[in-house]
Each structure stands twice: as structure tokens, then as C-alpha cells.
Amino acid sequence: MLVIHLLSSFVFNILPVPIKPTIVHISVIIASIIYGPRIGAILGALMGVISIVTNTIVLLPTSYLFSPLVENGNFASLIIAMVPRILIGITPYFVYRLMKNKTGLILAGAVGSMTNTIFVLGGIFVLFSHVYSGDIQAMLAAVLGTNSIAEAIISAILTVAIVPALEKLKK
């Protein structure tokens, strides 16, 4: 997860692309499907810790949303950084277990990604709209309309491509 985080941060900061999708959560989704919701939740918590550390060290205008240790950050920052990421490790497992086929893998990848998006953006709206000085609905809609769609598609494609190979190796 750390390697994926560092490489994706490096690549998306160098390439002149209009969106910068998060891809660290894909490893959490895949682990959830292969090893179950407990391991998935643990890796999701690790992803949350990575987010807290990154936003504490690399200060961006949005760092307060994910780190209680920066200006305007508080306990709500911990909720936004941790809860959605833990849930990423749980929801894909149950989606895939309901279907147990290729469609289930595609949906599990997309649902895992959207779990993060919905809970992070929802948390920002509920817990931090008073801090944001601009039009928070417009900002959240822009993220939802760009990054989140790309993340869901990438997650679905990589999940359906990687999980069958890992399940064979596991056996």
C-alpha cells in the first residue's frame, strides 16, 4: 500500500492530468474479497493512517479534512480519514459473496471505491461545511463528477483482472 501510495502520488503530481484518482484503496478492496472483511478492515485502517500521516506532513489546503494535527483539523478529521477506509475493507467482500461471479467482482470493485467516495464526501459535507469558505456543494460535486467516476471504473477493472489470478495462487 505504501509503494502504491508513493508511486501514484509521484505519477499523478508529474503528469499533467486534470484528475488525480486515488488507487491505494484497490489493494484494500482486493484483500477484502480474497481474505475477508476483517483483514480488509485492518488494511482499510492502515490506509486511513497513511492518509493522516500524509496530510500531516504534506500540507495542502484540504489537509485539515484528514488530519487533526493541522490548522482547522479536529476529531472529525479522524472520522473522515478512518471510517470510510475501514468500510472499504468490508463492503466489497459482501457484494462479491452475494454474487460470486465476474459481475460480482466488477460491482465489488466499484462499490468499494464508491464507499470511500460517499463516506468521505458525506463526512466533509456534514462535519466541515462550516470551515470551507467557498461553495462546498460545488466543490463536492466537482470531485464526485471527476475523480470518483475514474476511481470506480479503475477499481472495477483492476478488481476483475486481479482477483481471479490471486484466488488461483491462494489455492
Rank of each mutant, 00 (worst) to 15 (best):
E167C: 01
L15G: 03
L15W: 05
P18V: 09
V83A: 00
S133D: 07
I124G: 02
P92T: 05
V53F: 14
I42T: 13
N72S: 12
S27L: 05
P37T: 08
I118L: 14
L15F: 06
L105T: 05
G36R: 10
R97D: 13
V163Y: 01
K170I: 02
P84R: 02
S129K: 07
H130G: 14
T22Q: 14
L98M: 14
I29C: 09
Y93R: 09
I157S: 09
I57A: 15
I149A: 07
L2W: 13
L2D: 10
I79M: 02
G89W: 01
A152K: 06
S9E: 14
I86K: 01
V163M: 00
M139N: 09
I162Y: 00
K100P: 04
I157K: 08
I50Y: 13
I14P: 00
G73W: 11
I30S: 00
L15T: 03
S113E: 09
F66Y: 14
A108E: 09
L78D: 08
L98G: 13
L158S: 06
G36Q: 06
I30G: 00
P164R: 01
T54W: 13
L43H: 11
S8C: 11
L7Y: 07
G48C: 06
N74D: 12
F125H: 07
A142V: 05
I19E: 08
G112L: 03
I23V: 14
T146A: 02
T115R: 00
I57T: 15
T91K: 03
G89K: 04
L107D: 00
K100L: 12
V126K: 05
T159D: 03
L98E: 14
L158G: 10
H25C: 04
M1E: 10
L98K: 15
A138T: 10
L6F: 13
L7N: 04
I88L: 00
R97M: 14
P18G: 11
V58S: 10
S51L: 12
L169G: 00
I57Y: 15
